[in-house]
Design a protein around this nucleic acid. Structure first.
Lengths: 331, 331
DNA sequence: AAAACTTAGGAAAACGTTTTCCTCAAGCCG
DNA sequence: CGGCTTGAGGAAAACGTTTTCCTAAGTTTT
């Protein structure tokens, strides 16, 4: 039933053509040059080129007990920010001879576990979690040597795995400081009811930032409704604020998507003219195009790829990388 | 240097635990039940569960000469429409026991070739091209048994590969008919200067649709500037229209992203109030949230996944699947 | 009761690599 | 000239599966 792959040329063919043993071909192909004379190397290289040979990954993976695959498990690919990270990671991995396998866990623990299992069977070189959720397999994995990299959200198991992301708490505080220094007036906050460390830290930072200036956020102006995605959460949160007669001058959202949703609620309420100022997190690349008045905390997603590679290859022994964020003001 | 994967339990361990040969374990694991007694099957199953055994893909791929990997080569992951297709494909593939490997070719032939080579080395079960571009390797691949599936854009090599997408020509004609029947007045057209069959067919359909009603699109109102992405193209095209004093009542864009770009140009020109009506293609899921006045031809991206799987597994012998589109009117 | 099947399961080959030893020859030192 | 070292390269094992035979017992058919 399984369709056979094309009978590509194998190492044997190259060896035969070059008149050497397969061991030599393998060495040359892998850049081990001190075991063959320059002439032999040249001959083998020529044969490789002539046959368009490339080592089959299955054979290599079998022998080396690890593949060139790096699994990236994203919580939600529909989120442009996640897609941006994935794209950036893909480029960086490729440049390091690794291949990205991208999966969408939909933030569901069972699905995440299923993927973790599969990637273990694939002998993935490393597993990158773009928004991890706690799950049994994840805990088991911590006991294995497979490198685990947590992006945006920290590992649900304290003190394990490398982290790549921004300092969300500091970013939250920055937003609060900015709001106060601008004298924007009454602020509201909409965030996801998620247990993710990113959201938690942002919210904590925001609250801290306000209280550090002896100001405070009206608890009635904080909303964290349930919702199937950030867009819906933002819309629902804003709807509640409007319904309750709140008229904030600024709405802080813990993601750009939440802000998109909130803006829609204001439009739908016929209050487009009285739309409050808004600020989100991520600074989605689309903002300049579709949300010209949305301020946002820019997260350098384009730089995540390299950071992820560094974490994957364990180039630095540190427990992770904290990248800089930047508050981008619009509108 | 390569970090070793955890010493997961292998088929031998299972065999030892169940007191059978590895052949029997393999058979049971693959659901071949007519070669073992029910009791043996049960015993093996128990051992498999106890050891949390899952066949290593490298061994399997080596023996079967094909892997469970399906390569998806996307032209541009930053495009939410592509991301949506990828997400949909990923789910459908997974449900069929296949694993998606996602790559971003950035519409560049060399990069596409590099990925094609790599995926051949990975013994990918099939290769899905989300926006293929012509390239040497692609032509070579047509001679191999590896199934090739073209999504959105048809194969650059006539008559080869399966196709999944909508009838772009008909969709273009639908847009023209809609514009005329609504009596919207003077229309403009912005499209990418791409050689992709999707864009070509849409443009052709639009022009045909107009002439079929004995109307015509002012050639001076058709723009196809160069640009690094659709957003930039839309912005530049609109900028040209504005500069040339065109004041179309409707701007037809061959993608939603182009329309986003065009809208930005009008805003930037200080003409937000006089923004023409717009219609795009894709109907990005984000439209309802960020572009409430953008009409669009909805492409059922959520259904692409299943169609792709059907094409990949060759379940139907047809040369491809044409899915229905739908004109969604907004604003 | 011999012959022919069936059932349950095992032994072993094959898949394509990488890598660990070997070997053989040449060059060097004493 | 005998013993080292070094350079160049080969033979073969091992990795974990799947699958093709094979076998030995039991069961049916003549």
């Amino acid at each position: 039933m399984p369709r056979r792959a094309p009978p590509a040329s194998s190492i044997k063919d190259v060896a035969a053509l070059a008149g050497v043993s397969i061991a030599t071909v393998s060495r040359v192909a892998n850049g081990v040059l001190n075991k063959a004379s320059p002439e032999t190397v040249a001959r083998v290289r020529q044969a490789i080129a002539a046959l368009d040979y490339r080592p089959t990954s299955a054979g290599r993976a079998l022998r080396q007990r690890t593949s060139r695959l790096v699994a990236v498990l994203a919580a939600n690919l529909a989120n442009p920010a996640m897609a941006a990270i994935a794209a950036s990671a893909e480029v960086a991995l490729r440049e390091n001879g690794l291949v990205m396998v991208l999966c969408d866990t939909h933030d569901r623990p069972e699905l995440q576990d299923e993927y973790l299992r599969e990637m273990l069977a694939q002998q993935a070189r490393a597993i990158v979690l773009l928004g991890a959720v706690d799950s049994p397999m994840l805990r088991k994995l911590h006991a294995t040597p497979t490198p685990l990299v947590f992006v945006n959200r920290r590992s649900p198991v304290a003190g394990t795995g490398r982290f790549v992301g921004i300092d969300n708490r500091a970013a939250g505080a920055d937003v609060a400081r900015w709001a106060l220094s601008k004298g924007l007036g009454k602020a509201a906050l909409i965030h996801a009811r998620s247990a993710s460390s990113a959201t938690r830290d942002r919210v904590a930072g925001i609250l801290e930032g306000f209280s550090a200036e002896a100001a405070a956020l009206d608890p009635a102006a904080i909303r964290s409704p349930e919702g199937r995605d950030h867009l819906a959460i933002g819309r629902e949160g804003a709807r509640q604020l409007i319904e309750d007669g709140m008229a904030p001058a600024l709405v802080i959202c813990t993601s750009d998507l939440i802000a998109y949703g909130a803006a829609r609620a204001w439009r739908e309420a016929g209050l487009a003219a009285a739309m409050p100022r808004m600020i989100g997190f991520d600074d989605s690349p689309l903002n300049d195009w579709v949300a010209p008045t949305l301020s946002s905390v820019r997260i350098p997603y384009g730089a995540f790829g390299e950071a992820i590679v560094a974490a994957v290859t364990g180039a630095d022994r540190s427990s992770g990388l904290v990248l800089p964020h930047l508050l981008v003001e619009r509108g």
